[in-house]
Design a protein around this nucleic acid. Structure first.
Length: 419
RNA sequence: GGAGAGGUGGCAGAGUGGUCGAACGCGCCGGACUCGAAAUCCGGUAUACCUUCACGGGUAUCGAGGGUUCGAAUCCCUCCCUCUCCGCCA
């Protein structure tokens, strides 16, 4: 959410920014709505003022004057109720429109319409040319009995799966390894709830219900299954004021992630690449405004470190405006080489949301001089298990169809080879 | 899940229909005293929004939402959370 005052004063910039992000918003319409809302607010407050004055007079007034005042009070009660209803209707529409306005964008972010205009920043390693035809993780898993998609579908439906045998252990090893790595970097380890209240979803910028949602919600309850630990970690300090010298607060959270992924069948969702449930280790930072830009670079560096330590071939991409999404001020993705896709596949993502998320979540910083301002929030994937497993399986496969375990994970698996 | 108690400012804690945005205390900030500090004394000390060049003025907020009333922190209803006991369970 942007500050309405900022929008009023920078209407053109905000409109241009939304256009760059390929988001259909109408700033002029929002500002017209804002005017109506403020006019109604004034009317409501005027009536309430008179109501309060009458209530105040009642304390000292003579018996003869009381009935008149009571009558006047009754009339005001009706008119305030009407005006409030009118105001609420406009305010609600206003809020919806305001929430749809995307965050501003980093000046260095490439302008572009879609992911095709993302800018490659750096390639780590070289795409190998093995002396055999590399298999996809689905083929490898089939031959080594590592993932059971069929029975996953039987038990929970399409795009659910069982991780099996050494692959199940490999995921646990990866989880433990990456958690410990991040703890060593100063991040506080957390295992989060896998469900969150709608208010937390909305606060973090997710839409829990409605036709466009990617979120599973619980019927007859104010709860949804989280799509990422960003949701509970962002909600962790919701409605809090954090002292300046406590910042930044850095967390590394493990959770299950649930996504409906409606309408995404096809090549882009092959195997483990796009599934309804996976586990993920997520980094989340609450920062002071002047810290966030450097911390975003830190998150990118940490993500790159993880995949370098795993010995994977990947590249870092600077996400362009059209692919950025609403909350992000700037975003980097890491993409690993995936034989099954025949190209790069996203494995992690890190965003600087500046104060956009904090404003919704109502997380503030108290400066040393006592003043308050909204915090900045950042998030980044340390490791999304399903996609990291794809990269490992496909890049670490051998000519005989076996898979070598990355060196770094062997202390956590206890074995160095699958198959 | 059942029974009971409770949720008020940064903390602690009064307040049971108007004199309450809210006592007293602690903390914090400023000042006095002091060579300096402690102690003491004096003053200040919630948030959001609207309005004003400014001083200021206004509206809302006592867990959340709704209701009663001319008027609600206070009365009623629903929900959430915390504590104690019981049941159940990993």
């Amino acid at each position: 959410m942007l500050d309405i005052k900022y929008i009023r004063e920078n209407a053109d910039l905000v409109q241009k920014n939304a256009d760059n992000k390929r988001m259909k918003v109408n700033i002029a319409a929002l500002l017209a709505l804002d005017d109506r809302r403020l006019a109604l607010l004034k009317e409501v407050e005027e009536i309430r003022k008179e109501r309060n004055e009458i209530a105040d007079k009642m304390k000292s007034v003579s018996a003869e004057e009381r009935p008149g005042l009571i009558e006047r009070g009754k009339a005001l009660k009706d008119s305030v109720a009407h005006k409030e209803t009118e105001y609420e209707a406009v305010a609600s529409e206003w809020k919806t429109a305001l929430l749809a306005i995307p965050n501003m964008t980093h000046p260095d972010t490439p302008i572009g319409a879609s992911d095709e205009e993302n800018v490659e920043k750096k390639v780590f390693g070289e795409v190998p040319s093995p002396p055999f035809t590399p298999k996809s993780h689905v083929e490898l898993a089939e031959e080594l009995d590592l993932i059971d998609f069929e029975r996953g579908a039987k038990v929970a439906g399409a795009k659910f799966y069982f991780l099996k045998g050494k692959l199940a252990l490999l995921e646990q090893a990866l989880t433990q390894w990456v958690m410990k790595l991040m703890v060593a970097e100063g991040y506080v380890p957390m295992i989060t709830p896998d469900l969150a209240k709608d208010a937390v979803l909305v606060g973090t910028g997710f839409n829990p219900r409605g036709p466009e949602t990617q979120i599973y919600s619980i019927e007859n309850a104010d709860l949804s299954l989280i799509g990422t630990a960003e949701i509970p970690l962002g909600g962790y300090h919701m409605n809090e004021v954090i002292e300046e010298d406590k910042l930044p607060l850095k967390y590394v959270g493990l959770s299950h992630c649930f996504r409906t992924e409606a309408g995404t069948y096809g090549r882009e969702s092959y195997g483990l690449y796009r599934v309804h449930q996976f586990s993920k280790v997520e980094l989340f930072i609450f920062a002071a405004p002047w810290q966030s830009e450097a911390l975003h670079e830190e998150l990118r560096r940490l993500e790159e470190m993880v995949f370098q330590k795993l010995g994977l071939v990947f590249r870092t991409v600077d996400i362009c405006t059209g692919d950025l999404g609403g909350p992000a001020y700037r975003k980097y993705d890491l993409e690993a080489w995936m034989w099954g896709k025949g190209g790069w596949g996203e494995i992690t993502s890190t965003s600087n949301c500046t104060d956009y998320q904090a404003r919704r979540l109502n997380v503030k910083v108290r400066r040393k001089d006592g003043s308050l301002e909204y915090a900045h929030t950042l998030n980044g994937t340390a490791a999304a298990m399903s996609r990291a497993l794809i990269a490992i399986m496909e890049q670490y496969q051998n000519a005989d169809g076996s898979i070598t375990v990355p060196e770094a994970l062997i202390p956590f698996t206890g074995f160095n080879r699958i198959g």
